[in-house]
Amino acid sequence: MNIPFDIILQLFVVICAVAAITVRDLLSAVMILGAYSFFMCLMWAQLGAVDVAFTEASVSAGIGTILLVAAVLKTTRRTKD
């Protein structure tokens, strides 16, 4: 049985997206969102859009995660709901 590579990547993307909105700890949610961005970046690269993949890796997985971590540290780490 030979599963295509993009199916596996899409599976990881969906798992990361669901995990990021269900997890209670906000710092963990930020980290999972970074992993989500990285898998999206791999998916863009696999689809041939290398420039989009580069932007996704540097902006979303790089500085977006840093900004969200800074925001979590300035506010609260636990969700109210």
């Binding site: 420039d51 580069f54 932007t55 840093i66």
Partner: peptide
Amino acid sequence: YVIMHGHYSPGGGFQGGVILGASMA
């Protein structure tokens, strides 16, 4: 490197600037 090679390879001013800003952070 990303900024200087932006016109003939993936990357460019925006991505290179983001990496520079991340290094400063």
